[in-house]
């Protein structure tokens, strides 16, 4: 198999009922310093979207993807929050879409949750991306001569009418830096097929599941005393066709120290120093007049094609 280097993500989960903010920041920076492509913010007591925004302001080059349910959320709110994270992170934003079992979320939202959670998820995902497209790049014109702030011909209603949900749009938030922040979906079985068909960028699946998604990641759980043999396992997954791995490591720094040199020796993943982008070291001053260093976007780091705006493509 001669495919790309193995992509690496670190899953950030934290203790209940009170996560340790400092530990979340430390682990995100550990992952960044080790050259990982992204961190996922796992569901927990803290809202993952807000943790992602907080970490975006405390890091400078790693991708940040909160896990957010499609079943219990409004696509409009998810779309604007993810666009905002992408703005704060200068194009490092992502989303791990998760589909809940309707029985598990009974009584937690004030609308009737459909039994067809996968169908709802596909429509949700489509709505989120349509809202990202609803502002064309350059829609803000600030034309003093005509007193117009936007060119309203470049801001669109999305008018999605689905079986489970409808959204008129446009978004309140302009198109984010990546156009489309990276959409990962963690799903298995029929739900995974629906989401891949709906156009996710990355499917995060159980080991071995084949997929038509552009990228396939595998979740790997790593206990603190199980670093021996971890590298071999990752190398095997890579050989088996996985594009990337999401490490759910109890001791992230220890796990990375154990596996990164072996992955490099095996030619599966180069060392962090060989990779593109500015050196890690925490965030630049957000008000720095020189502007932030321009790290590659998360789409670029995952080798994904630039996002196409459906409204511009139509024109």
């Amino acid at each position: 198999m001669s495919h790309r280097p193995l992509l690496l993500a670190a899953a950030l989960a934290d203790r209940r009922p009170l996560p340790d903010r400092g530990a979340l920041v430390d682990r995100a920076r550990t992952a960044e310093a080790a050259g990982l492509e992204l961190v996922t913010i796992e569901p927990g007591p803290f809202d993952p979207l807000l943790v992602a925004a907080h970490l975006a302001a405390r890091t400078s080059r790693i991708g940040i993807a909160p896990v957010v349910s499609t079943t219990t959320t409004e696509p409009f709110h998810v779309s604007t929050a993810l666009a905002t994270i992408d703005v704060v992170a200068h194009g490092r934003g992502g989303w791990v879409a998760q589909v809940d079992d309707p029985a598990d979320v009974d009584g937690t939202v004030t609308w009737d949750v459909t039994a067809d959670a996968a169908g709802d998820a596909a429509e949700h995902l489509e709505a989120v991306r349509a809202l990202w497209d609803s502002w064309e790049d350059g829609a803000e014109i600030r034309d003093v001569a005509t007193a117009r702030f936007i060119d309203r011909d470049r801001v669109h209603h999305v008018d999605l009418v689905g079986e489970h949900l409808s959204v008129r749009g446009p978004s309140i938030t302009p198109r984010p830096p990546q156009g489309h922040p990276v959409v990962l979906a963690r799903a298995d079985g029929p739900a995974a097929e629906r989401l891949v068909a709906a156009g996710v960028d990355v499917l995060v699946a159980a080991e071995g599941a084949p997929s038509a998604a552009p990228r396939r990641f595998v979740d790997v759980v790593v206990a603190a005393d199980a670093h021996d043999g971890l590298a071999a396992r990752l190398i095997a997954l890579h050989a088996d066709g996985a594009d990337g791995v999401v490490l759910h490591a109890e001791d992230l720094a220890g796990a990375l120290a154990a596996v990164l040199p072996e992955l490099e020796r095996a030619g599966v993943r180069p060392a962090a120093d060989d990779r593109d982008g500015p050196p890690p070291g925490g965030p630049a001053d957000p008000e720095d007049p020189a502007g932030p260093a321009a790290p590659p976007t998360l789409r670029e780091r995952l080798g994904l094609a630039p996002a196409v705006n459906r409204f511009e493509a139509r024109a």
């Binding site: 979207l49 807000l50 907080h54 975006a56 302001a57 994270i85 703005v87 704060v88 309203r152 801001v155």
Partner: peptide, 29 residues
Amino acid sequence: SLREHAGHLHDLDVVGRPDAMTVLSALAA
């Protein structure tokens, strides 16, 4: 929603804003 006037998006004032709670979580940092 974006403001509308006379059947069109209102284009004379600032239009567009980020999600408030998301911005504030970043500002907390």
